[in-house]
Design a protein around this nucleic acid. Structure first.
Lengths: 180, 180
DNA sequence: TGAAGAAAGGAATCACATTCGGAGCAATCT
DNA sequence: AGATTGCTCCGAATGTGATTCCTTTCTTCA
């Protein structure tokens, strides 16, 4: 075995399931905003050397904390200025097949199964209201689609990927009694 | 003026407002899925040399088609397994102030003003249902918040950033009559 | 047909990612 | 207590890929 491999194995020990320390969370926070940072720059921001942050980022990837690195495209600038959320009521039917078919469309950005007075929630970004109409038509052509309600986005004040921070205060017990 | 600057200026001619050709759209499509690709690899996928794609990517950034490059964090793996959409009914009030305050919370991922039977739509990712409770409490403490309806996500089948593709067929006129 | 502008490719340069070896530090065992 | 083991850090060295420059080619327009 080449020396490099052996070292690699030794170094990768204990990659699994470890709580995030402050360094990790800061790194995640920075990368969630700008993944184009150099390791040197990132290191100086969190107070570590480039090799150290490199090691940590590698670990964060390996353990699934970082799922990937993507370029964020501007909807309007790339020809899809129209954004809408669509609530879908379904009756039985093979959801997974329907979802897989929908996922093929680049207009579909999110598909969630939700609790509440509706069943499924879609996030759709498309070229125009006409395109949304076409998409709804396709939806209704699928089996088990009972009804839809569309919420057309007029303006977007915030839109970003998951952030690293956690507001601890939100979990404090509410006003009067401390639950369990 | 140094030679490099002059060259840069010459090279940056015509950066503004040009329609995306097939190369651009393919590049955007690839980068929206994986921004970690090397220019050489990207070039071989679209059929251009590394310097050529580099030039185009630079242009796509400069013209705002690419807003940024980010690391995609896994919600559950980073301590926020709880996802919900919250519809908010507001009465008058200074929305922008409220929105700015909300944006401070890393739990808030999206804030849209929408048309439909509700006013504002929030995407919230937090640690627990208790945290959502805490967030709603903060919401109600703000002026002009009339009511909220929360849709708790049970499972997510698809979640991604804006894609480059456009399904032309969606814009075709519907069944019977050709509009306009 | 000729001239000019834009874009691509090849080669060279430069910056940064990545690796390596060693040192510091904490926890565990003797 | 002292030693050992394992982990993570850092500085220096290396390699790869980003970036630049220059030339060539293609297209467009006079």
């Amino acid at each position: 075995m080449p020396n490099s491999e052996k070292t690699e194995i030794i170094r990768n020990k204990g990659l699994e399931a470890r709580p995030l320390d402050t360094f990790d969370r800061t790194i995640l926070g920075e990368l969630a905003v700008d993944a184009g940072l150099s390791y040197a720059e990132l290191g100086s921001r969190v107070g570590l050397s480039a090799p150290a942050v490199h090691e940590r980022v590698k670990r964060l990837r390996a353990t699934g904390r970082i799922c990937g690195t993507v370029a964020v495209l501007d909807g309007p600038a790339t020809g899809k200025p129209f954004l809408a959320f669509v609530h879908v009521d379904t009756t039985g039917g093979s959801k997974s097949r329907t979802f897989r078919a929908l996922s093929e469309l680049p207009e579909l950005e999110e598909i969630h199964s939700v609790a509440g007075d509706t069943c499924t929630l879609l996030k759709v970004r498309c070229a125009s209201s006409r395109a949304l109409e076409g998409l709804l038509a396709r939806l209704y052509a699928m089996p088990g689609i009972k009804a839809t309600r569309s919420y057309v986005v007029l303006s977007t004040y915030l839109e970003r990927t998951p952030q690293a921070g956690i507001t601890e205060a939100l979990e404090e017990p509410p006003m009067d009694e401390a639950p369990r």
